[in-house]
Every structure is written in structure tokens, then in C-alpha cells.
């Protein structure tokens, strides 16, 4: 195994972990936002804005 290949392997793993953590955070935010918008939407339908 060449030294350079190990470096590229590590770099690829770091990129994947960074992407994975970022996506996990985006998923959390989007899910929360979706729940909040849904709640607002339901409230608005029940009580129309004056």
C-alpha cells in the first residue's frame, strides 16, 4: 500500500464524516421547521387572521 493512498483514504473518510454530520444537522433543523410550519398552518386554518 502506497503512503499516498493512505492519505487519500483518510481525507475521503474525513470528508464523508463532515458531510454526514452536516446532513444530520440539516435533517434535524428541517424536521423541526416542518413541524413548526405545520402547527402554524393548522392554527391559521382554525383561526383566520383578522
Amino acid at each position: 500500500m502506497l503512503e499516498g493512498t493512505n492519505v487519500v483514504l483518510l481525507a475521503t473518510l474525513v470528508v464523508w464524516i463532515a458531510l454526514f454530520v452536516y446532513l444530520w444537522q440539516v435533517d434535524k433543523r428541517v424536521s423541526r421547521l416542518s413541524r413548526e410550519v405545520e402547527t402554524l398552518h393548522r392554527g391559521e386554518r382554525k383561526e383566520p387572521h383578522p
Partner: peptide, 8 residues
Amino acid sequence: ALLIVVSY
């Protein structure tokens, strides 16, 4: 992660 390691 496993596949990345195996691919190298």
C-alpha cells in the same frame, strides 16, 4: 465509512 476503507 466501511466501504471507503475497503475501496482503498
